[in-house]
């Protein structure tokens, strides 16, 4: 069993775990962590598949993609967490499926 295949399969597994958490978990923090794990799974797939060049040389393009992806994911996480904190402060809720006490708004 070659290295890249192990990591590719593992990445796919990790991606599924993250997807499950993002969709099925109700706590907002679990969703955020789930999204991050999803991303990591994909990065792993990317890098692993990038290794699969005929001459064994690592392809730089997937690495560049992963680096970009990491930065973007952090930005998304920061935004999600700041919304979550604000929401919790306003409503005391950490679960988007529950109705907030009052919906005001212009």
């Amino acid at each position: 069993m070659s290295t890249y295949l192990i990591y590719a399969v593992g990445g796919a597994l990790i991606f599924s775990i993250g997807t499950y958490a993002l969709l099925a978990q109700r706590h907002i923090m679990h969703k955020v962590i789930g999204a991050n794990i999803m991303g990591s799974g994909i990065f792993m797939v990317l890098i692993a598949l990038g290794k699969r060049t005929p001459d064994g040389v690592t392809d730089p393009v997937p690495q560049a993609m992963v680096l970009t992806g990491i930065v973007v994911t952090v930005a998304l996480t920061a935004l999600g967490l700041s919304i979550a904190k604000r929401y919790y402060t306003l409503t005391g809720l950490d679960d988007l499926d529950q109705d907030p006490p009052a919906c005001d708004g212009r």
């Binding site: 907002i28 999600g80 919304i83 979550a84 604000r86 929401y87 306003l90 409503t91 988007l96 907030p100 006490p101 009052a102 919906c103 005001d104 708004g105």
Partner: peptide, 9 residues
């Protein structure tokens, strides 16, 4: 507000 944050999240 709560509604906007929830929609945003």
């Amino acid at each position: 507000d709560a509604r906007a944050l929830r929609a945003g999240a």
